[in-house]
């Protein structure tokens, strides 16, 4: 009996370490493959170089870093107001019945596979952008739209929960003071729900910056630093997925090094996010 309890405890401790172990293995393997590229190209050279031409040993990923940031920012510009607006409407203005139907509908749609979003973008958005705005159609704009729509479910459902968590007394107090519905939302509900809304935005951002297949399909994947919304663009994730299958030697290491850079950027974003959310909660 005693022994069994002890055994269970040891087992559970080991199991508890599983996610840390996986994380450790991921870091170990990706870094082990990628670090030689830093050594050879030079870390600074690698992240600030503007030319990516592995055949000529030109390995600079600044265009992809810029690409990831621009596309993610674009996705937030599209998805954030739309998602937050939808969440505010559902939580503050819609009838209980409407909210009860729409909220789960949107959450169900979170399950749409990303390749489907990418393909819709490729068949509908890319030609539309080419015909109405010019350029090749594969563009920052197309990627931002596709990713912006992709992050909608996360954005709506997490910020809805945050808004719902604001005690009704807050609203009632404002309304009693003679404010309009929107004033109550603007002055009391939104500030109170801010940490949750921030968390939603951060989750959405993480999803956008990490997305691969959908972006490959619509972004065009040129290795230039985009100067217009109609320029094609390549993100860090697509750089890896595009070329990994064919890369050898230094080229291959440079792709893993791209993975390392992506990993570091995401870790920094997550840490900042955690600090920000914690700061706002106080």
């Amino acid at each position: 009996m005693r022994n069994k309890e002890k055994l269970v405890e040891i087992l559970l401790t080991l199991i508890g370490l599983s996610s840390v172990t996986v994380l450790g293995l991921i870091i170990l393997f990706i870094f082990k493959e990628g670090l030689p590229a830093f050594a050879q190209v030079g870390l600074w050279q690698f992240v600030t170089g503007t030319r990516w031409s592995p055949g000529k040993n030109l390995l600079g990923i600044l265009p992809m870093i810029a690409g990831s940031f621009v596309v993610t920012a674009g996705a937030l510009v599209v998805g954030l107001p739309l998602g937050l607006g939808c969440a505010i409407y559902l939580s503050e203005f819609a009838t209980a019945k409407t909210a009860a139907i729409l909220k789960p509908t949107i959450e169900l749609l979170a399950g749409i596979p990303s390749v489907v979003f990418g393909f819709i973008g490729l068949t509908l958005m890319v030609p539309f952008i080419r015909n109405f705005f010019g350029g090749p159609g594969f563009s920052v704009l197309a990627s931002a739209l596709v990713l912006g729509i992709m992050i909608l479910p996360t954005m709506v459902s997490v910020s809805y929960d945050a808004l719902r968590a604001v005690p009704p007394v807050y609203r009632e107090g404002m309304l009693a003071l003679g404010s309009t519905d929107w004033q109550a939302v603007k002055m009391v509900v939104l500030p109170a729900a801010r940490p949750g809304i921030l968390a939603a935005a951060i989750l959405a951002m993480g999803r956008a910056i990490g997305e691969t297949m959908a972006v490959i399909m619509v972004a065009g994947n040129s290795t230039i630093i985009p100067t217009s919304f109609l320029d094609p663009v390549r993100t860090l994730t697509s750089n890896i997925a595009l070329e990994m299958g064919y890369a050898t030697g230094l080229h291959r290491q440079a792709l893993f090094a791209t993975g390392v850079v992506l990993f570091v950027i995401i870790s920094i974003l997550n840490l900042t996010a955690r600090v920000v959310v914690r700061g706002k909660t106080r």
Partner: peptide
């Protein structure tokens, strides 16, 4: 560890 793992993009899991 769990939270960090949740933030890692799927392409990195693929490489790993």
């Amino acid at each position: 560890g769990t939270e960090s793992l949740a933030g890692i993009p799927s392409i990195i899991f693929g490489l790993f």
